[in-house]
């Protein structure tokens, strides 16, 4: 399983109700169904991913998350997850608000744009960072709203969002003592557990 998902699954209670926004090929939900008997749904737009979910027996709903989640009742899920998709949303702040409305807890992961490599790329080359991990150029990237850990935490303060847990990992999704020391510089992926 993708290493960030390995970390997330530990935060999911057995027999709980989970909504995975941008669920990809359904890997996490399939794992949680088998190991923790959770019930829930994935939301996805990619056609191949949707087929992959159906093959795994994962409930998947084709929907563009940017169009909103208004049809879902308040607090109807124990956990709402969004991994590596916040930066492609049209309005990440509104999506986070919606996630907190329908979920008792939310888990959000996103690439940290404050990582030293990104900073160095922009500082020394004077160009938008391109890397193996973020391989797009500025004009074709689906990542339209980058932020750093500091940015996200500022949003949490402004919106009265309570951070329950924060984990920072590098590109290989490994924790390293140095990342804990200086997360905004050395962490590549942020994993937040939040509630309101």
């Amino acid at each position: 399983m993708r290493a960030d998902l390995e970390i997330i699954q530990e935060w999911i209670a057995p027999n709980s109700k989970v909504l995975d926004l941008g669920c990809g090929n359904g890997e996490l939900l399939a794992f949680l169904q088998q190991q923790k008997q959770i019930t829930g749904y994935g939301v996805e737009v990619d056609h191949d991913n949707i087929t992959a979910c159906l093959e795994k027996g994962v409930n998947v709903i084709e929907k563009n998350i940017d169009e909103g989640l208004a049809s879902i009742d308040d607090s109807s899920f124990d956990t709402v997850i969004m991994t590596q998709a916040l930066q492609v949303m049209y309005r990440p702040d509104q999506i986070v608000d919606e996630m907190l409305r329908i979920g008792k807890e939310c888990i959000v992961t996103f690439p940290n744009f404050g990582h030293w490599r990104a900073r160095g790329y922009l500082a020394f080359r004077g160009k938008m960072p391109v890397s193996k991990f973020l391989p797009y150029t500025w004009y074709n990237t689906p990542n339209i709203h980058f932020c750093t850990f500091k940015d996200f935490e500022q949003l949490c303060v402004e919106r009265n969002i309570h951070i329950l847990d924060r984990t920072v990992v590098d590109n290989e999704h490994k924790h390293h003592w140095s990342i804990r020391l200086w997360p905004n510089m050395l962490g590549e992926i942020a994993i937040y557990r939040i509630t309101r």
């Binding site: 109700k17 019930t39 749904y41 949707i50 979910c53 159906l54 409930n59 998947v60 709903i61 084709e62 929907k63 049809s71 879902i72 009742d73 109807s76």
Partner: peptide, 14 residues
């Protein structure tokens, strides 16, 4: 689909 989700039924939609 919305009704099935609200009723906590197992549902997929394409």
């Amino acid at each position: 689909v919305d009704a099935l989700v609200a009723a906590e039924k197992k549902v997929s939609y394409a």
